[in-house]
Amino acid sequence: MLDACAALVDEVGYEGLTTTLLAERAGVAIGSVYQFFPDKRAVVQALTQRNLEAYLQRLTERVTSSELTDWWDGVGAAIDEYIHMHRTVPGFRTLHFGDVVDMHLLDEQRDNNAVIAEQLAEVLVAKFPVPDADELRFALAIALEAGDALIRFAFRRDNKGDEQVLTEAKALVREYLHRQFTGRLVRQP
């Protein structure tokens, strides 16, 4: 059902999505949809959670590999994975991490990008000598908001992502984080 939801969201958008359409596309009775999900929002929430888990798994695999040598490489990997999901994961370009539906879809207390920033901070702290601090999460939240807006812009300009805009998005995030943390982020041995 989640795969059917992802395909439908790409075709008709969130507003056009109905549980009836979902049941038809998934080849199940409408009662089967309601057995697992009370409404379309719950289906989209499950799809968003699946996308978040896939994103974090892929990011963790990249960050823990030996090819990344510093925290910026980890941030770059996070941006690259987000762009990759826009290009390859059905429904992601429309839903992102659920903010189209609800800014608090992933967590009732925090907005979706705050959840992503916290998860990203955990991944970076686990691999690189950076402090696990509120300052890092706050800076990552700002970087995510700015990067997310520019990545969306890139995909509005070009269905595959305008490379010039994507390059500028990465540069903006890098410069912001560099300004915030140069000489302050690395833990002393």
Rank of each mutant, 00 (worst) to 15 (best):
T69M: 05
Q109H: 12
H104G: 03
P129F: 01
I83Y: 01
R62K: 03
R87P: 02
D132E: 11
T60L: 03
V44R: 08
R137L: 00
R93F: 06
R50D: 15
Q109A: 12
Q49C: 04
A54N: 12
T60N: 10
L136R: 10
W72D: 08
Q57G: 14
V44H: 05
E67H: 14
E122N: 15
V63S: 00
V43K: 04
R50V: 14
V123L: 07
R93H: 07
I79D: 00
I116L: 14
I116A: 01
D107H: 07
A46M: 13
Q49G: 04
V125S: 11
T64I: 04
A46L: 09
H86F: 10
Y55E: 06
E81W: 01
L105K: 08
M85T: 05
S65G: 15
L47F: 06
P38D: 12
D107L: 02
E61S: 15
D73M: 07
R50G: 13
L52Y: 05
A126G: 07
V100W: 11
A46E: 15
Y55M: 02
A117F: 09
F97C: 02
V125Y: 13
D73R: 05
A54K: 14
D39I: 03
R93W: 06
Q119A: 15
V44F: 09
L140T: 09
L56N: 03
F37L: 03
Q45W: 05
G74P: 10
V100D: 09
A121P: 04
R58I: 03
Q109V: 06
D70W: 09
D134T: 10
M85S: 07
T69Y: 05
V75Y: 02
L56V: 08
D134Q: 07
Q57W: 12
R87F: 00
Q49L: 08
L120I: 10
A77M: 11
D80Y: 05
L68W: 04
Y82T: 13
W72H: 14
L120E: 02
E67N: 13
F138L: 08
E67T: 09
I83N: 09
V43P: 04
R137H: 00
F36G: 01
A77E: 04
E122V: 07
R62Y: 01
H96I: 05
A54I: 08
N113W: 03
T88D: 06
G98E: 13
L105P: 06
S65N: 13
L52D: 00
Y55C: 05
M103F: 05
R58G: 15
E67V: 12
A114R: 12
T88C: 01
E61N: 14
P90G: 00
A114D: 11
F128M: 13
Y82L: 15
P38K: 02
E118A: 07
H86P: 00
A46F: 08
N113P: 06
T48H: 10
D111V: 12
R110G: 03
V43W: 00
T48I: 14
R62C: 01
T60D: 10
E118M: 06
L56H: 02
I116P: 00
K127A: 14
I83C: 09
L120F: 11
F92S: 11
L106A: 01
V75S: 01
A133P: 02
Q57R: 15
A133F: 06
A139K: 01
L59Q: 07
A78P: 08
Q119K: 15
H86L: 08
G91H: 10
M103H: 13
P90A: 06
T88P: 01
A54Y: 08
M85D: 04
R87N: 00
